[in-house]
Amino acid sequence: MERILAILVKDRSGVLTRVSGLFSRRGYNIQNIAVGRTVEPGVSRMTVTVDADPLTVEQIVKQLNKLIDVLKVSDLTDEPAVERELILVKVKAEPGRRSEIQQMADTFRAKIIDLSPDSMIIELTGSEQKLQAFLTMMQEFGIKEIACTGKISLLRGSKVTCDMKI
Protein backbone atom coordinates (compact mmCIF):
# COMPACT_ATOMS: atom_id res chain seq x y z
CA MET A 1 0.00 0.00 0.00
CA GLU A 2 1.23 3.47 -0.85
CA ARG A 3 2.23 5.58 2.17
CA ILE A 4 3.32 9.20 2.29
CA LEU A 5 5.88 10.19 4.91
CA ALA A 6 6.85 13.74 5.80
CA ILE A 7 10.36 13.79 7.22
CA LEU A 8 11.87 16.88 8.82
CA VAL A 9 15.65 16.81 8.71
CA LYS A 10 18.54 19.02 9.68
CA ASP A 11 19.76 20.76 6.54
CA ARG A 12 23.25 19.23 6.57
CA SER A 13 25.34 17.85 3.78
CA GLY A 14 24.82 14.14 3.38
CA VAL A 15 21.41 14.03 5.02
CA LEU A 16 19.65 13.02 1.79
CA THR A 17 22.14 10.17 1.44
CA ARG A 18 21.49 9.10 5.02
CA VAL A 19 17.75 8.92 4.48
CA SER A 20 17.76 7.37 1.02
CA GLY A 21 20.59 5.01 2.04
CA LEU A 22 18.53 3.77 4.95
CA PHE A 23 15.65 2.92 2.62
CA SER A 24 17.80 0.96 0.20
CA ARG A 25 19.86 -0.77 2.92
CA ARG A 26 16.80 -2.10 4.69
CA GLY A 27 15.17 -3.10 1.42
CA TYR A 28 12.41 -0.48 1.31
CA ASN A 29 11.63 0.95 -2.09
CA ILE A 30 11.23 4.71 -2.49
CA GLN A 31 8.66 5.45 -5.18
CA ASN A 32 8.99 9.14 -4.99
CA ILE A 33 10.95 11.74 -3.07
CA ALA A 34 10.78 15.53 -2.87
CA VAL A 35 13.05 17.73 -0.80
CA GLY A 36 12.66 21.38 -0.01
CA ARG A 37 12.97 24.07 2.61
CA THR A 38 10.64 24.79 5.51
CA VAL A 39 9.82 28.01 7.36
CA GLU A 40 12.46 27.08 9.91
CA PRO A 41 16.01 27.97 8.82
CA GLY A 42 18.30 24.93 8.82
CA VAL A 43 15.42 22.48 8.52
CA SER A 44 14.39 20.73 5.31
CA ARG A 45 11.30 18.71 4.58
CA MET A 46 11.40 15.46 2.65
CA THR A 47 8.24 13.94 1.32
CA VAL A 48 8.78 10.28 0.61
CA THR A 49 6.27 7.93 -0.97
CA VAL A 50 6.81 4.23 -0.31
CA ASP A 51 4.87 1.13 -1.19
CA ALA A 52 4.81 -0.97 1.97
CA ASP A 53 2.51 -2.70 4.45
CA PRO A 54 1.74 -0.98 7.77
CA LEU A 55 4.24 -3.06 9.80
CA THR A 56 7.04 -2.25 7.40
CA VAL A 57 6.14 1.43 7.50
CA GLU A 58 6.25 1.35 11.30
CA GLN A 59 9.75 -0.11 11.10
CA ILE A 60 10.80 2.47 8.49
CA VAL A 61 9.60 5.28 10.76
CA LYS A 62 11.48 3.83 13.75
CA GLN A 63 14.67 3.40 11.75
CA LEU A 64 14.38 6.96 10.37
CA ASN A 65 13.96 8.28 13.90
CA LYS A 66 17.29 6.69 14.83
CA LEU A 67 19.14 8.93 12.39
CA ILE A 68 20.58 11.81 14.38
CA ASP A 69 19.82 14.31 11.61
CA VAL A 70 16.16 13.34 11.41
CA LEU A 71 14.01 15.64 13.54
CA LYS A 72 10.57 14.21 12.98
CA VAL A 73 8.75 11.67 10.86
CA SER A 74 5.01 11.77 10.19
CA ASP A 75 2.88 9.34 8.25
CA LEU A 76 0.36 11.48 6.36
CA THR A 77 -1.39 8.66 4.54
CA ASP A 78 -4.42 8.35 6.80
CA GLU A 79 -4.65 12.05 7.63
CA PRO A 80 -6.81 14.54 5.73
CA ALA A 81 -4.16 16.10 3.55
CA VAL A 82 -3.70 17.72 0.18
CA GLU A 83 -1.18 16.19 -2.18
CA ARG A 84 0.31 17.85 -5.19
CA GLU A 85 2.89 17.13 -7.81
CA LEU A 86 4.22 19.46 -10.47
CA ILE A 87 5.09 18.27 -13.94
CA LEU A 88 6.70 19.93 -16.95
CA VAL A 89 5.90 18.30 -20.27
CA LYS A 90 7.62 19.02 -23.56
CA VAL A 91 5.32 17.98 -26.44
CA LYS A 92 5.68 18.07 -30.18
CA ALA A 93 3.57 20.94 -31.44
CA GLU A 94 3.47 21.53 -35.16
CA PRO A 95 1.76 24.83 -35.96
CA GLY A 96 -1.36 23.01 -37.14
CA ARG A 97 -1.98 21.27 -33.82
CA ARG A 98 -1.15 24.06 -31.38
CA SER A 99 -4.71 25.19 -30.75
CA GLU A 100 -5.77 21.61 -30.10
CA ILE A 101 -3.05 21.30 -27.45
CA GLN A 102 -3.98 24.69 -26.03
CA GLN A 103 -7.59 23.53 -25.60
CA MET A 104 -6.58 20.38 -23.84
CA ALA A 105 -4.23 22.28 -21.54
CA ASP A 106 -7.10 24.61 -20.64
CA THR A 107 -9.31 21.67 -19.73
CA PHE A 108 -6.66 20.48 -17.27
CA ARG A 109 -5.93 24.04 -16.11
CA ALA A 110 -2.36 23.61 -17.33
CA LYS A 111 -0.18 26.50 -18.51
CA ILE A 112 1.91 26.77 -21.61
CA ILE A 113 5.18 28.28 -20.49
CA ASP A 114 7.44 27.93 -23.53
CA LEU A 115 6.91 27.79 -27.23
CA SER A 116 9.25 26.93 -30.12
CA PRO A 117 8.52 26.29 -33.82
CA ASP A 118 7.89 22.59 -33.30
CA SER A 119 7.38 22.07 -29.53
CA MET A 120 5.93 23.59 -26.39
CA ILE A 121 6.42 23.13 -22.63
CA ILE A 122 3.32 22.76 -20.49
CA GLU A 123 3.24 23.13 -16.70
CA LEU A 124 0.65 21.25 -14.67
CA THR A 125 0.05 20.85 -10.96
CA GLY A 126 -2.24 18.32 -9.38
CA SER A 127 -2.75 14.88 -7.98
CA GLU A 128 -0.99 11.90 -9.48
CA GLN A 129 -4.17 10.74 -11.27
CA LYS A 130 -4.71 14.13 -12.89
CA LEU A 131 -1.12 14.25 -14.11
CA GLN A 132 -1.44 10.73 -15.46
CA ALA A 133 -4.64 11.58 -17.31
CA PHE A 134 -2.99 14.63 -18.84
CA LEU A 135 0.05 12.63 -19.95
CA THR A 136 -2.23 10.09 -21.63
CA MET A 137 -3.84 12.87 -23.63
CA MET A 138 -0.50 14.39 -24.56
CA GLN A 139 0.82 11.08 -25.90
CA GLU A 140 -1.29 11.58 -28.97
CA PHE A 141 0.86 14.60 -29.89
CA GLY A 142 4.16 12.98 -28.94
CA ILE A 143 5.84 13.64 -25.60
CA LYS A 144 9.50 14.57 -26.06
CA GLU A 145 10.50 14.85 -22.40
CA ILE A 146 9.02 15.28 -18.93
CA ALA A 147 10.31 16.52 -15.55
CA CYS A 148 8.41 15.87 -12.36
CA THR A 149 8.89 17.16 -8.80
CA GLY A 150 7.59 14.20 -6.87
CA LYS A 151 4.73 14.37 -4.46
CA ILE A 152 4.46 16.94 -1.66
CA SER A 153 1.74 17.02 0.93
CA LEU A 154 0.32 19.20 3.74
CA LEU A 155 -2.39 18.53 6.28
CA ARG A 156 -5.71 20.29 5.69
CA GLY A 157 -6.91 22.91 8.18
CA SER A 158 -4.76 24.72 10.71
CA LYS A 159 -3.08 21.60 12.06
CA VAL A 160 0.58 21.23 11.12
CA THR A 161 2.44 18.04 10.40
CA CYS A 162 5.52 19.01 12.26
CA ASP A 163 5.57 21.28 15.24
CA MET A 164 8.63 23.40 14.70
CA LYS A 165 9.37 23.82 18.39
CA ILE A 166 10.95 20.40 18.58
Binding site: L55, E58, Q59, K62, Q63, N65, K66
Partner: peptide
Protein backbone atom coordinates in the same frame (compact mmCIF):
# COMPACT_ATOMS: atom_id res chain seq x y z
CA UNK B 1 16.34 0.72 24.74
CA UNK B 2 16.03 0.82 20.95
CA UNK B 3 12.39 1.31 19.90
CA UNK B 4 13.25 0.02 16.42
CA UNK B 5 14.01 -3.43 17.88
CA UNK B 6 10.45 -3.74 19.15
CA UNK B 7 8.46 -5.64 16.59
CA UNK B 8 11.34 -5.73 14.08
Amino acid sequence: IDPAEIGK
